[in-house]
Structures are given as structure tokens and as C-alpha cells.
Deep mutational scan, measured.
Amino acid sequence: MASQGTKRSYEQMETDGERQNATEIRASVGKMIDGIGRFYIQMCTELKLSDYEGRLIQNSLTIERMVLSAFDERRNKYLEEHPSAGKDPKKTGGPIYKRVDRKWMRELVLYDKEEIRRIWRQANNGDDATAGLTHMMIWHSNLNDTTYQRTRALVRTGMDPRMCSLMQGSTLPRRSGAAGAAVKGVGTMVMELIRMIKRGINDRNFWRGENGRKTRSAYERMCNILKGKFQTAAQRAMMDQVRESRNPGNAEIEDLIFLARSALILRGSVAHKSCLPACVYGPAVASGYDFEKEGYSLVGIDPFKLLQNSQVYSLIRPNENPAHKSQLVWMACNSAAFEDLRVLSFIRGTKVSPRGKLSTRGVQIASNENMDAMESSTLELRSRYWAIRTRSGGNTNQQRASAGQISVQPAFSVQRNLPFDKPTIMAAFTGNTEGRTSDMRAEIIRMMEGAKPEEMSFQGRGVFELSDERAANPIVPSFDMSNEGSYFFGDNAEEYDN
């Protein structure tokens, strides 16, 4: 993207840094990872977990959730003011799984939030270390993106479920800051804005008074975040219109849905970061690795190297396929839920299948599930090659597409044709070009129609051997075009429920 120079890199967003050079960025990201790792080690000690239990991804998720809940100030305040039966607002906890007599047992633990905050700050040299908290939120978000298709949420806001490739980060909490905003897809931002506008339509006082002023500035800020994701002048001009509207209503909703559809071809720039579970960072720190000293990046080879040398386990339900569970977590670790499966298959070195073909449910185990038949197995999170994460949407291309997802959002900077089903997408653009945004709409449609099938995206960008740390010898991959490109292809993934 041309304006790259004016933006802070995501590592800076990730670490609240002012302008830093590459070495400083690597050190501050490393410091953040160190903090998460030290916190995780301490929690495993508190909970008396064995090494194996500490490497269980379900335990990692519970521990991450506990610290996120302990620092969720708004919710904590709300819980104190609106006490609900049987919930102690000062405590947080969740299921911890232990191996007892050759069987997995679930144990519900409860801790004072104050105590968890103390352990977290102690692991982070006394700081609140917001960057580390956001990092864990993005890992949870990436896992949700890989596990669930947001059909219901899309339909509720009037969008087409086939636009799911635009929904990265749709389950990120509001408090995820600049680093969170960077990884949100165009569809996620559109959905947040539509929800806001709908509230304004239904509630006369939404934009009024002292609160209304705050609401208005939040609305304009979200519009600017979305505008910054678009790469064409016409899309940005249309966002200006939406932002400046005196009284946002149905016309703005129409414009936003139009823009979301246009992003299936004229893709937005959305950041991709490899955020790993805390149970990967903990053992690495415990083994003596100093992330701050060595430096770390979320968008280069580092996460690949770390996963190459990590042992992570997962509980497996009786009829689940461990290899499929591994694929789910591998995609989440690489922030690749909406990437082209052919690119992923090449990088991973084994075939990556669409969601609907995987015999696996989510990673988390519900409290009512029976533990008797639970097994555990090693997650295979290694890769054959590594590639640089991208934040450009890439230019655009036609490809055989599917009944489910009709476009992709690249996660890796790797040369390819970008699949999208042009006739299906263009069919949504018939007729409606009147109104105050008509010239911009016409211009956007013209650009979409001009998108050429034979153009290559990320020209000359390749993948790298894991021994090639400096990215000196790019390998331009070859793809098996007979395979499906979309992950949520004609899909039956479970729906995400809060």
C-alpha cells in the first residue's frame, strides 16, 4: 500500500510504541512475548500442572481467558453494579484439565481477579502490559475465525453469508486497541457500523446529549479505520460520505453494504499476525530463551520457528480426527482463516481442507461434555516452508469459486491468482447506482469489472525454506488448481455463540 510509510507498523501498534527502528520493534515485541511466557509459567505453578498438562491447549485457553477477564475493567465495573446470582464479580476462573488415573478430569478453578492481575503485572515488570493482553485477544479471535462461520451475524446486519472472507476479527472485544483495529476485516468494521446506525434509528437519543457526542466521535473513528483499509480513492470518498452524514440511517447502511461487497474484489488491507497460545510461549521462556534479547516478529519467520520446536497437546472428542484438529489450530496460529487453501497447503506441506470436510468441533470443551471418553493427542503445528504475512489485500483475480465463501483475504505475501467468483459478486451490483453516491458507485463498479483474471497478485513473492531466515531465496510455489480455494466452501461450520 502506498501510504505504508505514514502508518505505524503493526509491531508498533502491538507494543504501543512511538516510531521505533526494526531492532527496537523486535525487542519490544519480544518483551511482550516474554511477559506472556513468564505469566503462563507462574500460572502453571499456581495450578500445580504437570509439564504435559501445561502444554494442553484447553488449559492455555482457560488461563488466557482468566487474565483477560481480570483486566476487563468495563465488564468488571458492570458486574459490580449489576450483581447477578451466583456470579462473584471479583473472581474469575474456568475449567482446568488434569490427568488422573490414566483419565482426563475437569476441575473448575476460581481465583481472585486481583490475584491474577498481581501475577500478570509481576510477570511483566510491574506494568499492565496491555500489548500482551491484546495479543491474547487476537489469538482467540484468530481461533474463532478458523472455527466458526459468522453466517447468522452477517444475515442479521443485512449482509450476504458468502462475504465471510471479510469477517476477520469479528469476535475481537471493543477494547483491543490499535492492534485489534489493524486485524479487523472490512466486513467486521461494516458490521460494527451498521449495528451502531441501527441503534440510532431505533433509539432517538442515541446521537443526542453528552453521551451522543461520545457516540458520534466513536462512529467517526470507526469510519476512519474502515476508510484506511480501502485502497481505492472511490471507496475512500464513499467512506467520507458515510462519516460526514448528519443523521446516519438506511442510506448509510446501503452504502456500507455496497462497500463491503466491493471489497470482495477491490480488497481492503487487513493486517495478519501470528499470535500463538500462551502454552507455546511459556515452555520456550522456561527453556531459557530470551525473546527480548533475541527479538521477535509476528509477521516473519519467528512464529514458524517457534511452532517448529513446540509440543502442544489437545483434548480430542471420541469421533474427532486429531489431524483435522491440528489443521484448525495451525490455521489459527498463522492467522489464515480466509487465505486461499492452495497457498496454505503449499506452505504447510500437507493438504489443507475446507472447514466442512474437517471432523472436528471447536477447541474448547463445553462444561456439560462427558470427560470419560476424552483422549488427548499432539497437535501437528509444523510447516514445510515459511512466508511473510501481508497486510495488503493483493490485486484481484477471477477463479472458480464456491457456493460458500466467494473470495479470499490473503494472509501471506505469496504470488498467486486470487480466487473470487466474479459473476456471483457482480450480480449483486445491478441497477442500484442512484442517489448521492452514484458517481462513486459507478466508478467502483467500473474498477471491479476491469479486474483481470490473468493478473498475478504479489508478483514474484515466494515462500522460503525454514533454514532461509533472511528470506534470501524465494520459492514461487505451484498450486494444484483442481483443489478448492475457499475454506468455508459450501460450508456447515458451527455458528459462533458468545
Rank of each mutant, 00 (worst) to 15 (best):
D128M: 13
A471G: 02
R216A: 08
M136V: 14
G94D: 13
N21H: 04
W120C: 08
A70R: 03
Q20I: 01
T92S: 08
L379T: 05
E53H: 05
E220Y: 02
P453F: 00
A373F: 15
M238V: 07
V343D: 04
T390I: 08
G490A: 08
G460W: 07
A260D: 11
F230H: 04
P318A: 12
A332W: 02
L143R: 07
D101K: 05
R348K: 12
E192I: 09
L264E: 11
I445P: 02
N368P: 07
E192P: 06
G200H: 04
K273W: 06
E495A: 00
M440C: 07
N224V: 13
D290N: 13
L276V: 13
E115F: 10
E375M: 03
Q327Y: 03
V190C: 14
D340S: 14
E11F: 01
T45S: 14
Q20M: 03
G200R: 03
F420E: 00
A2V: 15
M456H: 08
R213K: 10
L110T: 13
K305I: 11
A129W: 00
V363W: 00
A131D: 05
K357M: 10
M196V: 11
V476Y: 09
M66Q: 11
G435K: 05
Q12P: 00
Y52L: 03
T390Y: 00
Q327R: 04
P354K: 04
A428W: 00
F39D: 01
V186T: 14
G404Q: 11
M32E: 05
G180C: 08
G5D: 01
G93I: 01
H135F: 10
L381P: 03
R174L: 08
N498F: 02
M105L: 14
A263L: 01
S3N: 14
A427C: 15
N202V: 07
A178N: 14
E495S: 14
I406G: 00
E81F: 13
Q20P: 15
D340A: 03
K48G: 15
L259R: 03
M374D: 04
R470C: 02
R355V: 10
D372N: 14
S376V: 15
R38G: 13
A179T: 07
G362D: 14
E292D: 04
S297T: 15
L166A: 03
S345Y: 04
L47G: 11
Q20R: 12
S176M: 04
N202T: 13
Y97A: 07
E443K: 09
W207L: 07
Q168N: 07
S60W: 10
H82I: 04
S482Y: 03
G200C: 07
F464Q: 03
A22C: 00
M105C: 14
G132W: 08
W207M: 02
E434S: 15
I475M: 13
G462Q: 02
A323H: 15
K184S: 07
F420N: 11
P173L: 07
R121N: 10
G187M: 05
A179H: 05
L306K: 02
D88F: 01
I316H: 08
S486I: 08
R8E: 00
N319H: 13
L166H: 06
F479H: 11
L56D: 07
R391V: 01
L61N: 10
P354S: 04
R436T: 05
T147M: 10
Y296N: 11
Q459H: 12
G37P: 07
R243L: 03
Q4I: 14
I257C: 12
R361Y: 04
D160G: 06
R391Q: 03
G349H: 13
Q4C: 08
R75F: 03
I201Y: 00
F39I: 04
C333D: 02
E443P: 02
S402Q: 14
G177A: 05
F420W: 00
N483Q: 13
D128A: 14
L307Q: 15
S367D: 04
D340W: 01
K452E: 06
Y78W: 13
T157S: 15
S310K: 00
K229Y: 03
S287I: 10
D340C: 09
P83S: 13
Y97H: 09
R117G: 08
R152C: 01
G35F: 09
I425N: 09
S457W: 01
L56V: 13
I96V: 15
T171G: 07
N321M: 08
F464D: 07
I116Y: 01
L264I: 11
C44G: 11
M222N: 15
K184D: 02
S353C: 08
D51M: 05
S141R: 02
E484P: 15
N309E: 00
M374A: 05
A263K: 00
V299F: 10
I265D: 01
Q311W: 00
Q308T: 09
S376P: 13
N144G: 11
L266A: 07
M163G: 02
S482Q: 02
W104V: 12
S245N: 05
D128F: 14
W139I: 09
N309P: 01
D203Q: 06
K325Q: 11
G393W: 05
G177E: 11
E484S: 07
R246C: 09
G249C: 12
G282H: 11
P277M: 12
G394T: 00
F39W: 15
R267I: 06
E454I: 13
K229P: 07
S486R: 01
K357S: 03
L133S: 02
I96G: 04
D497H: 03
R391N: 04
Q231M: 15
I347Y: 02
V190E: 03
R99A: 13
L166M: 15
R102C: 11
F420A: 15
R416C: 12
R261A: 04
D468I: 01
S335D: 05
C164V: 14
D290V: 10
S165P: 11
D88Y: 00
P248A: 14
A332D: 08
A85D: 01
A337E: 06
R446I: 04
M426S: 08
K90C: 03
S3R: 02
S170T: 09
Q405M: 15
F258L: 13
N59S: 04
R55Y: 08
A178F: 00
Y385Q: 06
Y219G: 01
K273G: 04
S392R: 04
R65K: 14
S28W: 00
D112E: 14
K452Q: 11
N319L: 11
E369L: 08
D16Y: 08
F489E: 01
G295Y: 11
R391G: 07
E252A: 06
H82D: 00
R470W: 07
L110Y: 02
T146M: 02
A451E: 05
E81W: 11
A237E: 04
E14W: 03
Q241K: 08
S326T: 09
G126Q: 13
M191E: 01
R441N: 08
G5H: 02
L266H: 04
T424R: 00
P423A: 11
T23N: 12
L298P: 02
I41N: 13
A234H: 06
Q12V: 05
S274G: 11
L79T: 09
K227S: 10
K325A: 01
Y296K: 06
G169V: 09
D128I: 03
H135S: 06
N417G: 10
G158S: 14
R267N: 07
R65G: 11
T134H: 02
R195T: 11
L266T: 11
E24K: 10
R361A: 01
N319I: 04
Q149Y: 07
R175F: 02
R150T: 03
Q405I: 00
I475L: 11
A131F: 02
G431A: 10
A129N: 06
N247P: 06
A472T: 15
A85V: 13
P410Q: 06
G93L: 08
Y148F: 10
G180L: 03
E292A: 11
Q409I: 14
A182Q: 11
I197C: 12
D240V: 06
G180H: 07
M447P: 00
E107W: 05
E18N: 10
G200A: 05
N247K: 05
G362Q: 08
A153H: 11
N76A: 08
S274K: 04
N125I: 09
Q241F: 11
P173C: 05
L193Q: 14
E107I: 05
F338N: 12
D302P: 14
N498I: 14
S262E: 08
I63R: 07
M105I: 10
G132P: 05
A85G: 13
C279M: 09
G435L: 04
N125R: 13
